[in-house]
Nucleic acid binder design. Structure first.
Lengths: 357, 357
DNA sequence: ATTAGCACTCATCACATGAGAGTGCTAACA
DNA sequence: TGTTAGCACTCTCATGTGATGAGTGCTAAT
């Protein structure tokens, strides 16, 4: 869409002024106010005419006949894509973010959780962190740890500090040496593979090798334990921060609206789905109001940044707020955080890969 | 307090009727209604007189002159302690609870989280689960797992399926055999101890033994890793379920009230403190309104059940709702859940201890 | 093309009014 | 003496009314 053909420079100026103002005040903005506050050098009557045009084009709307104008989703879209002016992040905030994220964190999930909390604090909206699904994460080590007679722990270690474990029952009379042998074989066969690559042939190969010296009663539980570890690794989790922030905004003064939104936030499974589609974009994705698939957040905007581990596994941090959101502020801080996280992830990976510490 | 001296049987009947009614309707209950609905065999005038007495004694109050009566915290207290009639748990609910909790769960925290969710679903209020602090949990095994050159994983296994791990950096040139040796020594020295018993003498003892064959650069990170594992184990976590349930109740129709409460629920640290004091009672603890220390939930009631691992480590599940809470329903279901959990915990412990599976 | 002026619209607020629920008190009753 | 009927009184809540004012669209003048 060649939107520039729709809108003269003046119309753009006016539209921006309207949206800036509305984001600040949450009040429909009228022509008189606009003429006074923003020095556009135009009379209210002229502005009125332009506003009528903008309304016809669908960028703004009137809640009722005698009210000012309110931006439509289409209006916000143009605003975000072309009109908005990004401000620099403040020095204090930059420092805060750096301080929080640059302390040594080996675990990817911890990093994302922390960043998410930070984003919610800084923006004043609600943040949603989804930890990565690990389908393609590479296994570093497998170990069977004897706990006591008849019980052992399977430990699966992958890159980026991802660890999972599972308790299994084993025959009473297993020698510790046997467990070490099994650990070694699993290590040899699985290390370097990613989760998806562990398929039937690989398992059969291992089974074959084990069958020589080990008993079936031992092999089966170990295999099951590993499978459960893989399942746990591949399960992404959802963390939400700053839920109550949303209640500060007048659009959720209506208890029914507020409840609707809070219920959406409680449905972590559907949240995962909502945020999954963002998983390809390199930069931030902005979904405004009805652009969201979910009916129940059609008066909310969702800004999502995704994080990738060596182009393979992905998690995300999102901010959700009313469509009347301070897009500039949110995007600025999220970009800043994203840059830092990308750098930290890089560090986690190279640290582990290079062993140069 | 010999409350029975305060109240005639008739007054008690009336008080109970008032509270029962108020819990159902959330409306101040008047004498006329009471005379009609509950067959007390008394005229509204008589009831009025009794109500005046009950008000003077502080069991009920009037929101304003021409309104019915509303129970006070003192009234609810008597109700919970003496007047309330516990109903049997319904067959469907019993089945639901059993189905959810009796599938094989080895991990204590999972069990408590699941139970908490269940309680919130059944009661229709909000539940708060605090996983146990593990100060006194007994260590079963320690293992140092090599991940790759220069990096290893510490795994600490304790009873009840509690596992923690931590990634450490180690010198490049460490032989796997050395790690096994170290694991063995730590195992020998730490297994059977509880977290509190791991103090300086024990550590020095281990250090002494290790110094003979291992390098300092290896021992220190391992020790640090174990300490961090212990810290992680001893950190209790808070899970909240059914937050939005609260918004269904008219006492939180006021957005300010609702927000206040939701903010309390977001402060997990202070929640832990609030629930800590309940950690001695064998049965459920009921805190009504102002009986709670926290100013901000003075119009809420909090019912807490605690769970102990062999009289040592403790976690809790609580239900929070308006003081006008269906105490009968909540207490019934929580008691039922508690009984089941206690049994399951017993199972987890004996299972692991006896190895008879 | 822009602007001043004006009639018109509509939400919002303050205020008045009436209905209804509930009370306390008094007097009659068992 | 305890219980009940009756009644005047109180206070909230819902409803309706009118004034206010912000904002618009249209027209005519610049």
């Amino acid at each position: 869409m060649f939107w520039t053909e729709d809108l003269s420079a003046r119309k753009r100026e006016i539209l921006r002024a309207i949206i800036d103002d509305y984001i600040n005040t949450a009040q429909p903005v009228g022509s008189r106010l606009l003429a006074k506050k923003h020095s556009l050098g135009l009379s209210s009557a002229t502005i009125r005419n332009e506003m009528a045009d903008l309304e016809e084009l669908g960028y703004i709307a009137q809640p009722h006949t005698s009210a000012g104008r309110v931006p439509s989703d289409k209006g916000y879209r143009v605003y975000v894509d072309h009109l908005m002016q990004l401000t620099e992040i403040s020095i204090e905030e930059a420092k805060l973010i750096k301080d929080e994220l640059q302390e040594k964190i080996f675990e990817l999930n911890k990093l994302i959780m922390k960043a998410s909390k930070l984003v919610s604090n800084i923006t004043g909206y609600t943040s949603i962190a989804v930890t990565p699904q690990m389908k393609k994460i590479i296994i570093k080590a497998v170990q069977v740890v004897p706990i006591e007679k008849g019980r052992a722990l399977i430990v699966l270690v992958a890159e980026a500090g991802v660890v999972q474990n599972d308790i299994i029952q084993i025959p009473q009379n297993v020698e510790p040496e046997m467990l070490i042998r099994i650990s070694n074989i699993f290590n040899e066969k699985l290390a370097g593979l990613n989760l998806e690559q562990i398929n039937l042939p690989v398992i059969q190969d291992i089974q074959l090798e084990l069958d020589i010296g080990a008993k079936k009663e031992l092999i089966l539980p170990v295999l099951n334990g590993i499978v459960r570890c893989i399942e746990k690794m591949d399960t992404s989790e959802v963390y939400i921060n700053g839920t109550t922030n949303l209640l500060n905004y007048p659009e959720f003064n209506d208890l029914i609206r507020a409840k609707e939104l809070l219920e959406v936030l409680e449905q972590t499974e559907s949240l995962k789905d909502m945020l999954k589609n963002a998983l390809s974009s390199k930069s931030l994705r902005v979904k405004i109001g009805t652009e969201n698939d979910n009916e129940r957040i059609k008066n909310c905007s969702l800004i999502t940044g995704t994080y990738t581990l060596g182009n393979m596994t992905q998690g995300s941090i999102s901010v959700i707020g009313p469509t009347r959101m301070d897009y500039g502020k949110v995007i600025t801080s999220m970009q800043y955080v994203k840059r830092l996280i990308d750098k930290e992830i890089e560090k986690i990976l190279t640290d582990i890969r290079k062993d140069d510490s």
